Amino acid sequence: MSATNSNGAPKHYPSVTKRVPMPGKATILAMGKAFPSQLIPQECLVEGYFRDTKCDDLAIKEKLERLCKTTTVKTRYTVMSKEILDKYPELATEGSPTIKQRLDIANPAVLEMAMGASIACIKEWGRPAGDITHIVYVSSSEIRLPGGDLYLASQLGLRNDVGRVMLYFLGCYGGVTGLRIAKDIAENNPGSRVLLTTSETTILGFRPPNKERPYDLVGAALFGDGAAAVIIGTDPLTGKESPFLELNYAVQQFLPDTHNVIDGRLSEEGINFKLGRDLPQRIEDNIEEFCKKLMAKAGLKNFNDLFWAVHPGGPAILNRLESTLNLSTEKLDCSRRALMDFGNVSSNTIFYVMEYMKEELKKRGGGEEWGLALAFGPGITFEGILIRSLE
């Protein structure tokens, strides 16, 4: 398991930031991420996937090859390995009841990645883990009681009165939901420091290819594994904490009568997903009004005056967003870069986008003051936060 942040070492910025956080507003104080050890180049995926699942259907193989090119993904990390399939060959057998085996793999793997990301984040923060007052834990990849929040708190050595919130099975918008919850906790509990950790693996959804389940191929071409963590707090301590984003205003909204567009069901074989072809169009039809609702809080009107941290569900969604809002080409570069480097890692991906955005803002000497963090998922649910750069 590897844990990294931007340069692999804690970063402290003793100089005063260009912008001062608003009193009482939640800020992101540190970030960290972690991945399983196995990195898969996209060009190697098809041969390995068909070898491991013992599939010899040439038409399905050609379709997956096309999908792998259109996703724009270049590399992804994965928990799944030859060793796991040798131990659990039933995972590659159509119709086998394997939910117990999948959870035996997923639960510890998700926790291990969550630990790696949290440790990297706390290291960058530079304060003792005992100063964390709350945990928000997000995952659509583990199922157990007690949940990963308790295991994480115990293994990090946090106080036993740390406040815990567990967010299960939200899918791709879960990371921004976690930010919204952490923001509310931080702003309503002065002096609190909230550790938000997200961790995801595709183990529950892994299965052999089948013509009757075309979305399985999309998942095989698009999704990856990993974890991310951030620490949220208000009124940063001068000289001890280094905020870089302010979480100014948050909105969640669902689109009526769209609950079947993204459909996931837990079965004896794991999680089965169905994805409606009209998902990008539904997002396109509603995104402008949603963004304007967030922007109005700061009196913003021009989409190109903002920086954008958008969850890259897939290239089609990013392309539709760019076209609908008439965004300059570079506005979604950080989202496209995260998708290329990690794939869609569900709730975690927004934090990989934000880390790239942090690099860009520092490189440009601050740049735009205001931005939007956006994610979309089952419901169809929109999550958005009006964010302010402190760089």
Rank of each mutant, 00 (worst) to 15 (best):
G174L: 12
R159M: 07
I185A: 00
K183Y: 00
G175I: 11
V162D: 06
L158Y: 01
V162Y: 04
A182L: 06
A153S: 15
E187Y: 07
V165G: 02
A153M: 14
L179G: 06
G163C: 07
L152R: 03
V176A: 12
G175S: 11
C172L: 09
K183V: 00
K183A: 00
L158K: 00
D161I: 04
D161S: 12
L170C: 04
N189Y: 08
L170Y: 13
Y173A: 12
R193E: 01
V162P: 05
L152S: 05
V194T: 13
G171V: 06
A182E: 03
V165A: 13
L170S: 09
I181R: 07
G178H: 04
E187P: 08
G171R: 08
N160D: 14
S192W: 02
L170D: 05
V176M: 03
G163L: 07
L179N: 10
Y151S: 14
A182R: 01
L167W: 02
G171T: 03
A153I: 02
Y151H: 14
Y173T: 09
G163R: 07
Y168V: 04
R193D: 00
P190L: 09
V194I: 15
A186C: 08
S192T: 02
R193G: 01
V162K: 09
G157T: 09
G175R: 09
P190C: 10
E187D: 08
R159A: 13
L152C: 04
L170G: 10
L167G: 01
S154G: 08
L170Q: 15
L167M: 15
I181L: 08
L152F: 02
A186Y: 05
E187H: 07
V165N: 11
P190Y: 10
G171M: 09
L156V: 05
Y151W: 12
D161M: 02
Y173N: 14
A186E: 10
Y168G: 13
G174Q: 12
E187L: 07
V162A: 13
D161Y: 06
N160I: 02
R193K: 15
R180E: 12
N189F: 03
P190Q: 10
R164H: 03
G191L: 07
T177W: 01
S192L: 00
D184P: 01
F169E: 12
L179T: 06
A186H: 09
C172H: 13
Q155L: 12
A186I: 00
I181Q: 05
G157S: 11
A186W: 04
G175D: 08
I181K: 03
S192R: 01
S192E: 03
A153T: 11
V165L: 15
R193P: 01
L156Y: 08
L152T: 03
P190D: 04
L167K: 02
C172V: 08
R164G: 02
M166F: 14
D161Q: 11
I185F: 09
N188R: 13
R193Q: 07
A186R: 10
L170N: 15
G163M: 07
K183C: 00
K183E: 00
L156D: 08
M166I: 06
V162M: 05
G163N: 05
F169V: 00
V176H: 03
S154K: 15
G175P: 08
